[in-house]
Design a protein around this nucleic acid. Structure first.
Lengths: 343, 343
DNA sequence: TTGAAAGCGGTACCAT
DNA sequence: ATGGTACCGCTTTCAA
């Protein structure tokens, strides 16, 4: 490959001018810049990554740690990885993958060897091992998700509480007096950081409105269908006129099928809102209103925060919550007249 | 961070000795080596990645290109990414992610800037754009999958033909005379490189044995259940006594449910073999014999081939097929007596 | 068995 | 607006 010397010679300038023309950190005369660009194009020059890291003390690489646990939902996870990669490229950064056992030892290794400028932490657990590590290593890190102990850390996440509250409020405003919620499988409430936040907000807000509420977990794998069906049945039997969904796409589909099987129409007979889903609820057999978790938003914000750390050293520790957006697909309406009388 | 100078000073040796102690490329006296190691431990020294890349002309990074198309099966894909990362770490390499639009432009960029020593190509399409690129860029690449035009390329894959042939042979040996195969959705036969190879091998080998064969595609998404059920029904009605499965885990589950619904027992009434599946067929409601596609095997082989290129420049172009292994779970048996008489 | 020193290919400071 | 050059931290040749 051509080096910066080749370019300088071809353009008839010094290497520092080439360097400055590339970085823009110093004004370069227009036609000088043109000659340099021509040389670059002709030679197919690309700055050597290693040399740049060494001289510039910048790797232009983010390390992305992802445990890839067995219970990780692959499609959601992939969406986050992809979103991170795209967000990184927008600021001219690459992404280095740290998986499995390497999530912890790898963070240390990558930080110590200056292989990455910052670490992005995915798939955050409430008691995540990477919290302690993040505090120790010499490079900044940004958590996409909020661990229990997040003192001094930089965290990004959807504002799940706000999303849940908005969902409950909308139903309350329409006159619903009994609402249910279908949550994730029970284990997720220990392993993951956000489901408990949604559950709590749901109960509290419903209480605030004086609305009867009924939260139910869903099952995993083969048990999911029956668990969802049963949950739905019991909620309906108890008189629920609206259901919030905070669970997998499969669970959404099963719920819709169950309602359909009972001959219920959405939203005439029952209102539905999906909270914090990261798939498109508009493409379900019946589109559902949603306050979605958008990987692109979280990841772009995370990258922006990381860049701020690097550029000005302004690391903005704290939990950066992304305000939810309501996407309407006509899946909510006032409760049926019968329920209003009964309620 | 500590540098190699710090270590050298602390150990009372020159930096070249430290370097050689680390790389092992030159003998170092035992106690010298001990003193150096002590200094390294105490200082928490880790060689600077950028400096190493520059001086050593080795990045110790593999670029992993993965298109992440919409039709990509997320769990399978994740398994391959994970397997690649683990295999890479075993040889002290890291993995840089090239996704989406970056799969092609990124390959060029990473190669030109010497950000990676080699490129690993995942999710290979029959007419993959990355083929032309691989031939042009200045770093070696290894395809995990076989594109149509693979002249001069290094490719690794399960020997799908051999797997299919072994499956057919086993059924033939047991006396089956009518066998069916449930394949992937039709689109996959254009977008992916291996399904056609299985389909062809199936038909050819069955013909060789003089066995009646019936290949059927499955559907995608919501249509899959009905497509699988119908396919199974028609195969059984035509007298099939064994079915090969070369499709998703969901499709396997639906097939088992369909057989169960017809009151058929595996393997007494019907024999099943799964070909090229990358999930565990032993954990299905009825365990199924399999000639699995093992991501770990493919990825380790790919990494080994890449390393061979780098170490000795011996790049072994060609298609490196991994011989299949038969995993028995008691899902095949001779055809029922009735079928034998009828056949 | 070990040390000295010349790069590797950039960045950025100090001059002009 | 541009050029010269001292590093960045390591690998590897050449010498001893």
């Amino acid at each position: 490959m051509a080096t910066i010397d080749d370019v300088a010679r071809a353009a008839g300038v010094s290497i520092s001018t080439v360097s400055y023309a590339l970085s823009g950190k110093r004004p370069v005369a227009v036609d000088t810049r043109r000659r340099i660009q021509a040389a670059i194009d002709e030679l197919g020059y690309r700055p050597n990554a290693g040399a740049r890291m060494l001289a510039g003390r910048r790797t232009r690489i983010f390390a992305l740690t992802e445990p890839l646990r067995l219970d990780t939902h692959a499609p959601t996870h992939m969406a986050f990885v992809l979103a991170t990669a795209i967000a990184a490229r927008k600021v001219d950064y690459d992404v280095l993958l740290l998986t499995d056992a390497e999530t912890t030892t790898g963070m240390q290794r990558v930080a110590d060897s200056a292989l990455a400028d910052a670490v992005l932490v995915l798939d955050v657990a409430p008691d995540d091992d990477r919290v302690a590590l993040a505090r120790r290593i010499p490079v900044p890190s940004v958590f996409i998700g909020v661990p229990d102990d997040h003192d001094g850390l930089v965290c990004v996440d959807l504002d799940f509480e706000a999303a849940t509250i908005e969902a409950v409020d909308r139903l309350a405003a329409l006159g619903h007096r009994r609402i249910g919620m279908l949550g994730h499988p029970e284990v997720s409430y220990d392993r993951s950081n956000f489901p408990p936040r949604v559950r709590e907000a749901f109960r509290r807000r419903a209480d605030d409105h004086g609305i009867a509420h009924d939260f139910r977990h869903t099952g995993v794998g083969a048990t999911s269908t029956s668990a969802v069906r049963q949950g739905i049945s019991e909620m309906l039997d108890a008189g629920a006129t609206a259901i919030l969904l905070h669970c997998s796409d499969t669970c959404h589909a099963i719920a819709l099928a169950a309602l359909d099987a009972r001959g219920l129409d959405v939203p005439t007979d029952i209102s539905l809102i999906s909270v914090g889903s990261s798939f498109d609820t508009a493409t379900l057999t019946t589109p559902i209103d949603a306050l979605p978790l958008i990987p692109e938003e979280s990841c772009e914000r995370a990258v922006a925060l990381a860049m701020a750390c690097l550029d000005d050293g302004r690391c903005a520790p704290g939990v950066h919550l992304i305000p939810p957006t309501y996407r309407s697909h006509a899946s909510i309406a006032p409760p049926p007249a019968a329920a209003r009388r009964a309620g």
